[in-house]
Design a protein around this nucleic acid. Structure first.
Length: 603
RNA sequence: GGACCCGUAGCUCAGCUGGAUAGAGCGCUGCCCUCCGAAGGCAGAGGCCGAAGGUUCGAAUCCUUUCGGGUCCGCCA
């Protein structure tokens, strides 16, 4: 049973070319494409075979095209073939061949479009990986949705996908988080007296604000939002006054570590909750701190060292914009320039501790050690400058056998009443992910985030995405599914098995055939989108599919013979119900890739 | 100074890894509901694909140069 009719016709075309020119090398044959023509008037499919094979075969393209046409029209799958332009061959398929896709869809169900393209290759998709220093906001949202949809897409395309979250729970930022939690903790334990003439006593005597804490303990807080209040309360429940310093000075290293671990855990719980609300899933959570503690960095750097890629050296200052405090100093460097990077990259800070890059090398090495054959990272655009060095590291670690694809997501600008919503933690105008979901709903958030290429900037209009009109693609696609379901319910909800057996000769109107062609393009769309790592193509496909269906629906308004349910024509009714059911199946299949639920009816 | 991303209709964006006469939505113009499927439908106008070279049968797509917008550039993660 054929699911990707473009692939099966391509097989025929390649076979025909090989018969004509048996000696053509595989790399030439690989360039042969069979795709939908840009203009449907040109036929059902078009192939460039004669154009790409003409020169290697030593035959003018048009002459080869003529021979190809003669071979192809003899096949049962091809009704007609004609030469166009410089040597395109346009193919027309027998209507019965196209109609036969309808029972295929109904039999396969939402598994229609599943592909073996990925050949069960282990592929690792890492996304979100937000620092556990606060609740998720809309900035994280796009990467989460894009990553999750991409993972689902790759799974549908036949890859063995591992969905991964890398918890940045080591380093200065979580240290700063622990200090902020400590401040909140001191506020929550205000009743406990402090030893006299200590920083804690001074803090107790103050109003207890952020500035007071910073002054009394001589630190600067990077975090401290209200979201830490419940964490501080939980700390009190768990530890009581046990974390207060007996000497009234700052927290001991152990105390701070305890607070850090507890707070990170609390933040991760909240992030997991946000992700669940968004329907974003992960198979694996990797802790940076645990990876470091387990010797992951040492192990990864040893691999590089063994290849002679690590050395002590001095970097040139950045051109044009030299930092004020720049001074040349010897550092431990990785020879990323061997792999296309612009400069070699430091692995250790001046105090001897590892850079984030060193830890991230360990993260990627860990994936490779676990047997992942392809790596995908979904990052914010601000990490663009980081891509080359990471690609270099992965190439070095795997001897070039493991490709790293980085999908960069541009910033999302949130609009309310046509005005940009300023994102500021301090001003409190910052929109958390859960606020966003509460306001417009999970499905609208997900679908809308996927209506743009990841690397194009996006406006997210809060008013627009809840609008029920053609202008809103979420609504447009959901409405198409609801209409399908409405028709099927009116017909007594016949099962797919019954409809798959229906004769389909009554499906002959151009609008109906156009819809069938769109359905038939679904498996190809999945493969193309997966190869390009571009889940947004699924959203655009669904819009096209919905459009083809709405068009048919509207035709029924002007021409009553095209209505789906016509009591006077039982066979046509069955055929159309099969088409409608197949449309609903493919919409659900596509929405599933986006992680969006189909609706049964519009309210 | 350098690296990376982006310049496509008035606006917001697609363009299937180099294919034919470059598409969609919004906006604009003109038609279409006494009733049977109008939270709408049909039709139309609107383009030097930022610019200039190059590669080849063929370029919005690849290369070089250039002009605009964004992101980033040792001891943040």
């Amino acid at each position: 049973m054929t699911t990707n009719i473009f692939a099966s016709v391509r097989d025929r075309v390649v076979a025909a070319v090989q018969t004509l020119h048996p000696a053509l090398p595989p790399e030439v044959l690989a360039r042969i494409q069979v795709e939908p023509p840009r203009d449907p008037a040109h036929g059902d499919m078009a192939t460039n075979a004669a154009l790409v094979c003409g020169k290697p075969a030593g035959q003018p393209p048009r002459a080869l095209a003529e021979a190809l046409v003669a071979a192809l029209v003899a096949l049962p799958e091809i009704d007609a073939a004609e030469i166009a332009g410089p040597g395109f061959v346009n193919l027309r398929l027998p209507p019965a061949f196209l109609r036969a896709q309808v029972p295929v869809v109904l039999t396969k169900g939402e598994g229609f479009g599943d592909s073996s393209l990925g050949a069960a290759i282990p592929i690792n998709v890492e996304y979100v990986s937000a620092n556990p220093t606060g609740p998720m906001h809309v900035g994280h949202c796009r990467g989460a949705v894009v990553g999750d949809a991409l993972a689902r897409l790759l799974a549908k395309a036949g890859y063995a996908v591992t969905k991964e979250y890398y918890i940045n729970d080591a380093g200065a930022q979580v240290e700063a988080l622990a200090w902020a939690a400590y401040w909140r903790y001191l506020r929550a334990t205000v009743d406990v007296p402090a030893p006299e003439a200590t920083p804690l006593a001074a803090f107790r005597a103050s109003p207890g604000e952020r500035e007071d804490f910073e002054r009394c303990f001589g630190v600067t807080l990077q975090y401290g939002g209200d979201y830490l209040v419940p964490v501080a309360e939980a700390l009190v429940v768990r530890f009581g006054a046990g974390l207060l310093p007996a000497d009234g000075a700052g927290p001991s290293a152990e105390t701070l570590a305890t607070i850090r671990a507890f707070t990170v855990e609390a933040m991760m719980a909240e992030i997991r909750q946000d992700l669940a609300a968004l329907g974003v899933e992960h198979d694996v959570f990797i802790s940076e701190a645990a990876l470091v503690a387990a010797g992951g960095v040492t192990r990864a750097l040893a691999v590089l060292d063994e290849k002679g890629l690590i050395y002590e050296g001095v970097l040139e200052p950045p051109k044009g914009k030299t930092p004020d405090d720049w001074e040349p100093r010897p550092q431990t460097l990785f020879r990323s320039t061997n792999f296309g990077d612009d400069v070699d990259r430091p692995l250790r800070k001046s105090d001897g501790s590892n850079t984030y890059f060193a830890n991230d090398i360990a993260n990627h090495a860990d994936k490779i050690f676990r047997g992942q054959k392809q790596l995908v990272q979904v990052w914010g655009a601000d990490h663009g400058g980081y891509v080359k060095r990471m690609a270099a590291a992965v190439a070095a670690l795997s001897d070039g056998t493991v490709p790293l694809d980085v999908v960069l997501c541009q910033i999302v600008k949130v609009l309310k009443n046509g005005e940009p919503v300023r994102m500021s933690k301090r001003a409190g105008t910052y929109i958390t992910l859960s606020d966003l979901i509460d306001e417009v709903g999970r499905d609208a958030v997900r679908f809308t985030m996927l209506t743009r290429k990841a690397d194009a900037q996006m406006d997210f209009d809060l008013d627009r995405v809840v609008e029920q009109s053609r202008e809103n693609p979420v609504f447009y696609v959901q409405y198409a599914h609801a209409r399908c379901r409405s028709v099927l319910r009116a017909a007594g909800d016949p099962g797919p098995a019954a409809l798959a057996a229906a004769p389909l000769e009554a499906l002959a109107d151009p609008t109906e055939m156009a819809l069938i062609r769109t359905l038939a393009a679904w498996p190809r769309t999945v493969e193309q989108a997966a190869l390009a790592r571009e889940p947004h193509r699924i959203a655009f496909y669904l819009h096209d599919l919905a459009s083809a269906f709405h068009l048919l629906w509207n035709r029924g308004r002007d021409d009553s013979t095209l209505r789906f349910i016509r009591e006077e024509e039982a066979e046509a009714t069955q055929a159309r119900l099969a088409l409608v059911a197949a449309t609903a199946v493919v919409i659900r299949s596509g929405l599933a890739v986006l992680g969006v639920g189909p609706v049964e009816e519009m309210r």
